[in-house]
Simulated assay, not measured.
Amino acid sequence: MVRVSEPKIREATIGDVPRIVHLIESAYRGDSSRAGWTTEADLLDGRRTDEADVTAAVADEDSRMILAEDGADLIACCLVRHRGTHAYFGMFAVSPAAQGGGLGKRLLAAAERLAHDELGLATMEMTVIRQRADLIAWYVRRGYTQTGRMQPFPYGDIRFGEPRRDDLEFEVLVKDLAG
């Protein structure tokens, strides 16, 4: 684990897209992801995202992609998207080498402040693969509530990966940012 004291946090630009894609892929897919605890390699093969998806997110006027950098190294990212009544949190990735040192907590808190203070939204929502009990528990410890609402996994859409099992689905988690 790399100790990161005070990473630089900033908004992404289009020029950051290739590094963001590499970070997200390394945190969730393939053997490199197994160095951290956020891997989905036992659930999904294939890609997690690509340059077109990340470019669209960075360019979207209703979205903000936040980066954390340690010097020249991109070590974490997340997306906050304005969805009318709430903020949606996604594309969250921390470099496997930087996991376990509190960076994820700090970036999540920065995303929540952005959603509340800059976007004026009182609620943050996200979806997490239901089978990721460890990840859901991590979010619950940060004040998120399991809603019990499930969304189907998009089987057959390779943009979301190639499932290794047939029972995947997403659970919606929510947090009140006003309290």
Rank of each mutant, 00 (worst) to 15 (best):
D16K: 00
A57P: 04
G15H: 11
G179R: 15
Y28V: 01
E162V: 08
K105E: 15
H86Q: 10
P152F: 09
G179L: 10
A59L: 05
L168K: 12
G179P: 11
A35C: 00
V21T: 02
R3L: 10
A93S: 06
R81K: 07
R113C: 02
Q99R: 04
G120L: 02
R81L: 13
A178D: 02
E169Y: 13
D166E: 07
F160M: 11
C78T: 03
F170S: 01
D134K: 13
D53P: 03
L103V: 08
D117F: 01
K175G: 00
M150G: 04
V17I: 06
T49H: 08
L121I: 04
L173A: 07
V140I: 13
V172S: 04
F153Y: 15
A35E: 15
D16I: 00
G161Y: 07
D31Y: 02
A178E: 07
D166N: 09
A122D: 05
K175P: 03
G15F: 05
D50S: 03
R141Y: 08
T39V: 05
R141Q: 12
T38V: 07
C77A: 07
T39L: 06
V94H: 10
E25D: 03
Q131A: 15
D73Q: 12
Y88A: 05
D167N: 08
T127H: 12
P154G: 02
A68Y: 08
A111N: 11
G100K: 09
I24G: 09
L135R: 08
L114Y: 11
G30H: 09
D50Q: 04
I75M: 12
D70N: 11
F170W: 13
L173D: 01
E61S: 14
R10C: 05
V58D: 01
D45W: 15
A59R: 12
G90M: 10
R113N: 10
L119S: 03
F170V: 09
L121C: 07
D166K: 02
K8N: 13
S33Y: 00
V80R: 04
A76E: 14
I20C: 01
V140M: 02
V140N: 00
R149W: 12
A52L: 14
A56P: 04
G30K: 06
I14C: 12
G102K: 07
L107R: 06
A133L: 14
P96E: 09
G84Y: 09
L44S: 05
I66A: 04
T49R: 06
E118T: 01
G100T: 10
E51M: 01
R113T: 15
H82E: 04
A12S: 00
T13P: 06
L79N: 04
Y88D: 13
Q151C: 04
Y88R: 08
S95R: 12
V174A: 13
G179Y: 05
H82F: 15
R3K: 15
L103T: 13
A68R: 05
Y139S: 01
R165I: 03
I9L: 08
D166L: 01
R159Q: 15
A68D: 03
L107N: 08
C78E: 05
M126Y: 06
R165W: 06
